[in-house]
Design a protein around this nucleic acid. Structure first.
Lengths: 216, 216
DNA sequence: TGATGTGAAGCGGTTCACAGCC
DNA sequence: GGCTGTGAACCGCTTCACATCA
């Protein structure tokens, strides 16, 4: 049964399924059952079937799923049948590391520009990625057809940067600044808080009996 | 009413409340209501009260919460009244960036060692953090009294690294490798998947009507 | 009066269990 | 027979609404 409201939990898992399917395809495997996939991911097979059933009937009863076909369906669903232009704002340690990281690993996402306010950095290049002046963000973002912006600036500057991003007509943002941001309608923000993540673990170390589950 | 089973959602929020309280304290504010805090974080005031009520009665009816006292309570709850020794495994782009990032920002977490298998890197230093041979992980980790390990190696190596970490008697792990890991009992893993995060945004760009909520 | 602490209701995601189909 | 697709049960987190108390 096709559904229209898809939870982020589901899309996150699709992304993980996809990575596995690419691996399985490399190994020459042609089909796989939800039960087998569940084993690999340490999760429930019904969950996998439900996740997939949200988008259509990709499996064959009695047989399982065709690896290559399922892979393509998921790529299509996640919008990974095209490339996205990404810019990273803040060319400090984190920003430059992310630039390198995404340049090498996430092939659908092309880092085309870094932005900074530091005169020393502006004009330099990181690999083939130019460091541009944040002052010209709006025009440069349009010129470079940016689809997605990554905020890697200190907390205090994050809201201002988000406002710039919004003004530039960019709708998807990944945010590494540890602050609650006020966003406009239609903007999607994925926040990754590296400090909160550590502090969750600190809580666990202080209360080891607090649970077995992984922190996802 | 004190509770013993605390959800990760709650501890994650506590970490965020804490950051805000530190800010408020800096501003010289003495007390604050759950309603006011909710405004700042764009969330529900009942949620904040419930989160806090899990650990005791910190508020005063008719008044609100005392900023300084609440701050200290949360620090204690999260185990942030002590320091933790952290090591980062993998001194590639991501590992070195995380080293710098945590050295500068998360004051309760002290990066004391990097590990790698690259002869070129072993023996070097990143700031004051030595790069050690992963071969000696167990003994070095004990010597340095590591509390928490960060996995920043390629996916293929992650499981092996986790097994080493487990063997070294470390119970808290932050994992940046995009693979499902099989872990032993009593180990807590916080996975941050930088690719899945991007792909969630890609899904949103492909399906802009898929919802307004933030991706946390 | 005013803001907390909390039982109850609401809601969304996960798991179960089985009907349906190859 | 075997595995998918799915309604129903379950479970845990969030929100509501109000009794409680300074």
């Amino acid at each position: 049964m096709k559904k229209d409201k898809i939870s982020e939990a589901t899309t996150g898992r699709l992304s993980i399924y996809l990575r596995c399917l690419l691996e399985l395809e490399n190994q020459g495997l042609e089909k796989i059952s939800s039960e087998k996939m569940a084993e690999v991911f340490h999760l429930n097979s019904a969950q996998i079937r439900k996740d997939l059933a949200n988008f259509g009937e990709f499996g064959v009863r009695g047989i399982g799923y065709n690896v290559a076909i399922l892979k393509e369906h998921i790529q299509k669903i996640l919008g990974l049948d095209r490339e996205y232009n990404v810019c990273i704002i803040g060319s400090g340690r984190l920003g430059t590391a992310l630039t390198d990281y995404y340049r090498l690993s996430a092939t659908n996402f092309k880092v085309v520009a870094l932005f900074d306010n530091d005169k020393e950095k502006i004009g330099q290049k990181l690999g083939n990625v130019p460091v541009l002046d944040i002052k010209n963000f709006r025009s440069e973002a349009k010129k470079a057809k940016i689809d997605l912006a990554v905020i890697a600036v200190p907390a205090k500057l994050a809201q201002g940067v988000l406002d710039e991003i919004t003004a530039a007509g960019i709708y998807a943002v990944m945010n590494f600044a540890p602050v609650p941001l006020k966003k406009g309608k239609g903007i999607k923000i994925k926040t990754v808080d590296l400090t909160t993540s550590l502090e969750s673990l600190s809580y666990f170390l202080t209360n080891p009996d607090s649970g077995e589950g992984d922190l996802i």
